[in-house]
Design a protein around this nucleic acid. Structure first.
Lengths: 343, 343
DNA sequence: AATAGTATTGCAAATGTTTTCATAAATTCG
DNA sequence: CGAATTTATGAAAACATTTGCAATACTATT
């Protein structure tokens, strides 16, 4: 009553208002079956009246879970991660957890800083994108015995539990598709690979697949582009105006592929007749460009959802079992790839 | 030493290792100038050695700030919000805060639930998208005296501090542009307006602008589409195959506009000769489609950044001054709009 | 050298919960 | 009906930190 106005409503205020002890109030929240329906009702009325909101900080301090999970991504502003974040967020929310989110712009030192910050908040678990992390980060997680999860990549010898797809396979599938269509002059546009094992794995698998056919990519048919349609378009423009134009473009992801597509269109090239283009990812929107983008689908939503489910299980379980989940890739053939033109 | 392995490293463990009192350790973190350089060094060594990580939950309980800011968005998986989230996240991170993120799928009751959850975590502030919220939410924020911020929309009579753009103006500018080009038969594709004051404001402003010119939009030239290129494309397809086709399409946002563009292309319509298209938002990628999308630019990144800066200032200030910031819109004329064809 | 002031440190209380243990009341059973 | 359970509640300790106050040690001033 008195401190009703002051916003200082704590569990003892509620207890007083309901004329019971704080213990009973606490129990009403945590083990409702241990308190009689009558008192429960009294307490709920008091809670309602005072506008009491539980203080998780105090619970956390007591050794209960904090109810937060930290997720550190390279960047939020990016179709595919946004999709994973969304799915992950929704799933852990359903399990009663809140999401602490941070991004590190592909800088593994900043990743370390973010993880550390999250540990200060006593997150119940921390999820990272990819398998490549700084030693400091690995040590930190290890030492603090915080449940950790690698998301997005799958590898059978991943030291952490992981939920993701096999990026090497993705690269391989993309290359295979172009080769099967008869392409031998293939341009490669990939993002920078430092601190980005996804891109790295894809690229090296592509190279391998091409090498097996005795194909090597001349350096003027290789280009680096950041995660941006417009910059990728630029890169593709210059690559496609080389004197010996490749017959196909294999792009490290769908954003780059879209850039490639727009570049081709603005150069007046017919896709797929003059140029085939394949991406990796199958982002939202890739299906809808004209022509639809051929790509290797990475099931971002599934990954996010599965990761959320399994990780919360893992965290709440008494004897957690490590797990590794490999999500299936799918080759989605749409309109941007076709057989190589005969000369 | 003993509990070094057990991960139970707290401030008193550090104190013991450094042979000082816990108070001194605490002070080293919070008021370093109050402790002598020599002891500070001792303590830092101990911290290093034991791998101590401060416990924010305990600090929070003591009345210090929790160091978290909650952001509730309609959806994460969505170009424009992703951009705001990214900018907001980075900015508050720089000020030492962590981001708690949740989405409510345009359901204001879920928004309430999310805000409540955040209040349990004792966030230092909570940011919401838009100005339309359930009464319960408003009451909750009011009653808990938690600093709150409305993001994305600007309105001069907003009850909360806000950082955003004027969506009515956005709608007006879009309509004006088409009218200036001579269009009189204008198709409208907008998202559902319930619980989405952005869309609502834009749409009503468009209607007003058209009415002023004595133009009303027949119902067969109006369509509703969710935030999805492909579904918008569907909607546009059926709208554009009506017997009396409009000469221009005004779309509630750029995603829908892209759908419209692809629909036109796949129907063999020349843009902008046969059909003009204008969007609102200027999302990443809007510049890069072929032809480039004409749109009203809403500076998402600026909004996120400004919001983060001002809000953290507001939270950390001793006597916080409410603020309202209106971010400038910009008409970006690219290739999808042109003068109406003469018959 | 004595005094006043300042810099550095420690003690103990306080923060809001949960949980163990103990106690009291109610119920069951022979 | 009395003993044995079971059910419902409360008291108090514990969680990891911060901070006001007090105490000590050091420095400067006269």
């Amino acid at each position: 009553m008195d401190n009703y106005q002051k916003g200082k409503v704590d569990i003892v205020a509620v207890a007083k208002a309901a004329k019971v002890s704080p213990s009973t109030v606490s129990r009403t929240f945590n083990h409702p079956n241990l308190v009689s329906p009558a008192t429960r009702k009294k307490i709920n009325r008091a809670v309602q009246k005072l506008g009491y909101i539980r203080n998780r900080a105090a619970q956390t301090m007591h050794g209960k879970r904090s109810g937060t999970i930290g997720l550190v991504v390279p960047t939020i502003n990016h179709a595919i991660f946004a999709e994973v974040i969304q799915a992950f967020s929704e799933t852990i929310d359903r399990a009663g957890f809140s999401l602490l989110l941070a991004s590190h712009s592909y800088d593994l030192d900043r990743e370390y800083a973010m993880v550390r910050k999250f540990l200060e908040h006593r997150v119940d678990g921390v999820a990272l994108v990819g398998l490549e992390h700084s030693d400091a980060t690995t040590r930190l997680i290890e030492q603090q015995k915080t449940p950790a999860l690698a998301i997005w990549n799958y590898s059978e010898d991943c030291p952490l539990p992981c939920v993701g797809a096999d990026n090497r396979l993705a690269g391989h599938l993309a290359a295979e598709h172009l080769l099967a269509l008869g392409h031998r002059h293939i341009g490669l546009i990939f993002p920078k690979t430092t601190g980005n094992d996804r891109a790295q794995n894809r690229l090296s698998a592509v190279r391998e697949a091409l090498n097996e056919k005795g194909i090597s990519v001349p350096s003027e048919h290789e280009s680096e582009a950041p995660y941006s349609v417009s910059q990728a378009k630029q890169a593709a423009m210059s690559l496609l105006t080389e004197h010996a134009r490749p017959t196909a473009l294999l792009c490290g992801n769908d954003v780059i592929a879209q850039g490639g597509l727009f570049a081709a269109q603005s150069l007046g090239l017919k896709v797929p007749d003059d140029l085939s283009i394949i991406g990796i990812g199958d982002f939202k929107g890739s299906a809808d460009v004209e022509p639809g983008l051929t790509t290797i689908r990475i099931p971002a939503e599934t990954i996010g959802k599965l990761a959320g489910e399994r990780f919360t299980d893992y965290i709440t379980s008494d004897d957690p079992e490590p797990f590794r989940i490999c999500c299936e890739l799918e080759r989605i053939v749409r309109g941007t790839t076709g057989p190589v033109a005969v000369f």
